[in-house]
Design a protein around this nucleic acid. Sequence first.
DNA 1: GAGAATATCGGGTGAGCGAA
DNA 2: TTCGCTCACCCGATATTCTC
Length: 275
Amino acid sequence: MADTSRIALLVQNILNAPDVDLDQISVKVVREKLPQMDEDITEEWMDENAAEVKAIIKEEFAKFQADQEPEQEEQEEDAEGEDDDDKVEEGPSSPKRRKTSHSDEGKKATKDDGDAEIARQLSSELNARSRRSTAKPATKTRAKKSPTKRGKYKSADTIDSDMDSDVSSSEAPTKKRKRAEPAKKREGGGGGGFSKLMRLSAPLAEIIGCEKESRPQVVKKLWVYIKDKELQNPNNKREILADDKFRAVFSVDKIDMFQMNKKLGAHLYPDEDGS
DNA sequence: GAGAATATCGGGTGAGCGAA
DNA sequence: TTCGCTCACCCGATATTCTC
């Protein structure tokens, strides 16, 4: 008769089989394969030991994953390395980028139920794997916005009227996911997202006039300063001619307005007060 | 003339998917 | 059906140039 220790071996064989499709494999699939691999394992026996078999499968799967992960990471790193070739100038000063899993660490840490956890891990890993394989290749930052997007980056004044048009034009070209109630709670200065106060570097603080400010406000005040000091190149108004204070921040004699925004990030630090 | 493109950031949230 | 997860998008702020 079959015994559970043998099940573990068989599960390992199934998982390590060269023809196994990791995108498709699941506890159920493994379970179905078992009777095919050993004639001692009958449907009856499987029914009688269902819980135990399931636990073994999960356990073996967890082990299998643990073995696979280092290799996978290496491969992914290699792939990323190649992709990164065209964005070398990005440099080390980009702390950021979307964090891919903002919540999972914290959430996972709270889970202590053994079986359930393994099941979830199994689920999420498989889920992630299949998504990764089907999703568009990860872009450097966020995916480029669709050109048909609603009038992006409008001032706040124009947004309200847009809302109306959204309602009437439900057949928007891109059929964007409609956000029923876009979070407006930050309005009063909630301190989250773009309202988050950032600590400014000393030279930037000197220009802005304060040590903590949200990024949009920094941009705003920066432009006030630029206008005030008439730092725009009259021949190319996108270009900012640096004065001493500006040079102290950006370390250049002139800078493109977009590059200015880019470099701005290097002078904004998370506010340690947690505000 | 209107709107898109350009640049950047952090946090919130809906969509979509697979497993249980 | 519910749950857990990842991804994509949205939000504010700015000015100029380009395209339709």
